[in-house]
Design a protein around this nucleic acid. Sequence first.
RNA 1: GGGAGCAUAGCUCAGUUGGUUCAGAGCGUCUGCCUUACAAGCAGAGGGUCGGGGGUUCGACUCCCUCUGCUCCCACCA
Length: 882
Amino acid sequence: MELPAKYSPAEVEDKWYAYWLKNKFFHSEPDEREPYTIVIPPPNVTGILHMGHVLNNTLNDVLVRKARMDGKNACWVPGTDHASIATESKVVAKLKAEGISKEDITREEFLKHAWEWKEKHGGIILSQLRKLGASCDWDRTKFTMDPDLSDAVINTFVYFYRKGYIYRGVRMVNWDPVGLTAVSDEEVIHRDTVSKFYHLRYFISDGKGNPTDKYIIIATTRPETIMADAAVCINPEDERYHWLKGKKILIPLINKEIPIIEDSYVEMGFGTGCLKVTPAHDVNDYEIGIRHNLPVLDIIDDHGRLNEKAQILVGEDRFEARKKIEGMLREAGNLEKVEDYTSPVGYSERTNAVIEPRLSMQWFLKMDALAKDALESVESGKVKLIPDKYRNTYRHWMENVRDWCISRQLWWGQRIPAYYLPDGRFVVEADAGAALKAAKELDPSVTAADLRQDEDVLDTWFSSWLWPISVFDTHKAGHPEAQPNRDLAYYYPTNDLVTGPDILFFWVARMIMAGNEFMHDVPFRNVYLTGIVRDKLGRKMSKTLGNSPDPLDLIAKYGADGVRLGMMLCTSAGNDILFDESQVEQGRNFCNKVWNAFRLMKGWSIDSAAKQPEAAAIAVRWFRNKLDMTVAAVEDHYSKFRISDAIMAIYKLFWDDFCAWYLELVKPAYGSGIDRATYEATEGFFDALLKMIHPFMPFITEELWQNISPRKEGETIMLQRSPAAGEYDIAAVNDFDMACEAVVAIRSLRQQKGLSPKEALTLMVKDGFPMDTIPAVQKLANISSVTKAESFGSVSGVSFMVRTVEMFVPLEGLVDTAEELAKLEAALDYQEKFLASVRKKLSNERFVANAPEQVVAVERKKESDSLSKIESLKAAIAALKA
RNA sequence: GGGAGCAUAGCUCAGUUGGUUCAGAGCGUCUGCCUUACAAGCAGAGGGUCGGGGGUUCGACUCCCUCUGCUCCCACCA
């Protein structure tokens, strides 16, 4: 077989992915084997693949492929999330571009557009995952708004409503004036923002609504809301303002009279000590308003514009109004001064609009009982967080959880199944028919046409928290008493969940709640929390910064295997990843290394008459041990989710041990064939190595595995068993390591002396070297003959130490005696100091008395080793001087 | 304001109950090589008072205190 010197991934990857699909290797059905289940964190249905997805899904794929090769019935369920706000805003934008405003069309028309959009863009990200090699069970692909999954959401709502957990109420919510919906507390991101601090003069009223010449100063960041002020508040302890008690104050510009109230909420040291209370537009002010029974005046509309209740600046955007009112206040003599000011401002996670605190009627889910159980699930270890530092964060959140605002003023999503009677009462039922029946019980005269369904839809997370259940069994969600179907019974709970810490509360915690509620069991055993993918400079990857490479471009350039490996090499749980293209290059290079090792091996012709050379026999014995040793280490890494350590161990095993040492040792002389025993052993090792690499680099390993020896249709490396760790002889590995050290020393010596690798040398060895490895040293260091010696006599040459053994390479005429002497004396000096420190330790009675025996033994070994080295060094120095 | 975490080689990070000749890895750097698998490569080399200070201990990268610097999460300071 003629193979090019460089591996080209493109055709190989498409070919094998198609082969895997055709043979349904990814598909899983319940059987008698142990299941291994992962559900995908569903990407937004209209999303496109970014580096975060690459990280997450590569990890998932590594885990699921490894499980499959461990003989488990592995099932990775893919799917997408309808992402109500994100998708709806995209559809709105698209319609806007076509000249259609959402307000001008009906809900049904809008949803038709939305579904069209979904059909058009919905599959993109899933097909991109195929490019990455993701071994999802595509037959099980789900969408959070599939009809049956939506039914599960509705049933869940009805269930919690009947349980008394869902209620409706007026609350101060986080209003997103761009998305035109309330968002939950978790969807608000607070960022320090530079703004202005306006110091305003509020004049005291003369009691008839006219200003006196006395005024107080109030500091605010939001002068455009003064028209909604309901009072001015001072701290009752604040003597500076006692004279104000009982007085009335006039709101600037509109001259509205409002009372002075006292509340200890106000901090005397902050601002001027006077607080304007605006119950409709500030959460704290709302609380104060309730305490003091103040009227609520809402002057800002859905879009963040001032409404007619503001009396002035009606129709102006809140930020425009702020600018304009500054001028008006200055003109009216109400503006004392303006300062620069930095304070935390809430932004919508989805639209980045400044959140407007706003009062509105919303639906809520009580969280306290659910959170208590979900906390217990993690505290007890039923769900393990990896890394476990997140337990603290998790606990803190669960202990301070607030009720979940689950309604959204959107159309894209599951519509809340509450039906209003004309008199304002409502019923909650799974469908309109049941609702009518229930409504008739309240009022027999009600007809279907009288009933009006709630306009709002449910928060997206209210569907994705059911994901580990609903992808298998859509009836079970909302019906804790029901028997799970066969799939759910078999696959639930899933094993591992890989996701980002940013959605630990949004999603992970809520899945645990839903799992506990409906399955009486947690939804997964391990939660692997990845970091955020950042660029080399530590900046978050974002479209606006343009610092995020397109994964598909990277795949096209380096191959999916290269991209995967590059990602896996630098991932450790819970740590952010500073991604750089050079890592992918490293991955690509590794592919090429594997490819070329294969080329080398396949290029050999077997000579049946050839006897196995000693060096090859040594190599085979050693590598078998080394392989077993590494398999054990890799298994240990997997068990602790140390994925980058696992691949690094495999990487070094392949590159350093297999290629640099093993292949060089067994490589036959140019022009000759290889003996059968060595060839077969090599092929066996190669097979094992491919299997170890496969979860990380599925494509190239399949390609090469298929070509090691002829395979039948339907055979695949994917379904082979991973190499199992066997017994290994650590002493043999250790002896070989010593041989390698000798080789390195001799090569280094060559470099120093400018000797070509082609020039054979001779070697003299003192007692203590593992002589059975000598043929390996000879082959790799090009040593023509080796003699054991008691002393090296007066031959001219260079001596060096390998651990405690002195070795000597005779080099007539190339030795600078003074230089050698200096080197040896430096080594002696170091060794003597080392010995002194060891002896100091050993002469410390408390050390000998308190330290464990083995630690003391190690020190004694150091002492004797050091003594023998000193002896050798002294002898070598003496010989040089002679 | 509350909570959590981090600081180890030029960069990114390991260091698993305080004890092996333990100060490591990968990348990068430097030197020499187009050696008949691979220059996307081979061979070799250099590089760190483990952030500063103090303490506990026979022994500290590891445990405790403190200082400095950074990050994240939560939170209503107008």
